[in-house]
């Protein structure tokens, strides 16, 4: 019963924050409203017993992506005039696409026979995930580091050459 109350609280926070992000005409509000959205999703992970995902969601999305987003927004010049950047354009096509996507998702949710695993005791999942990374998923784990290396070089190329051009 408590879980149901907690779930609905988190769901309402997540969706309301997401709506503020999408509809606010001030990009600063949009950026800050992301906090509620990310935190709400993190709460739902915790509610589902996914402790590792919960902490990663906090680390990466709130600690990393959100902070950088807010920095970017605050450091951008003329942020007060930013309300034009988030103008709701093409309201009717957007609404149509949202309705269509929503209908497809609703259909899929209703037609799927959901397995109910019952309530399991809260077990740390990090142990299993760690073993998977150095076990069956060793290759993806290693390739991920190559992806990051390529991204790093790409980022340096683009930013360093810009600095050179200014000099």
């Amino acid at each position: 019963m408590i879980a149901v109350i907690v779930f609905w609280t988190l769901a309402v926070i997540t969706v309301l924050s997401a709506m503020i992000t999408a509809f606010s005409r001030n990009i600063v509000y949009s950026a800050f409203a992301l906090l509620g959205s990310f935190a709400g999703v993190a709460g739902i992970y915790l509610l589902l017993g996914a402790d590792f995902l919960f902490i990663i969601q906090i680390f990466i999305y709130i600690g990393g992506i959100l902070v950088v987003t807010i920095f970017a927004v605050m450091l951008t010049q003329g942020v007060a005039d930013m309300n034009i950047s988030n103008r709701i354009v093409g309201l009717i096509p957007a609404a149509l696409i949202a309705l269509l996507a929503g209908a497809v998702m609703l259909e899929a949710i209703l037609r799927t026979p959901w397995p109910h695993p019952g309530t399991a005791a809260l077990n740390p999942t990090t142990h299993a995930i760690g073993n998977a990374f150095l076990g069956p998923f060793l290759l993806p784990f290693e390739i991920a580091s190559v992806v990051l290396l390529a991204a790093l070089i790409g980022a340096i190329v683009i930013s360093r050459q810009a600095a050179r051009a200014e000099a």
């Binding site: 993806p140 390739i143 991920a144 992806v147 991204a151 790409g154 683009i158 050459q161 810009a162």
Partner: peptide, 21 residues
């Protein structure tokens, strides 16, 4: 692996496309 391969390729090519600053 499909996804990681696609990302390795794409990230490198994004940077290459913008190489002429």
């Amino acid at each position: 692996i499909v996804f990681l391969g696609l990302e390795t390729m794409s990230i490198a090519v994004y940077a290459l496309a913008g190489f002429v600053r």
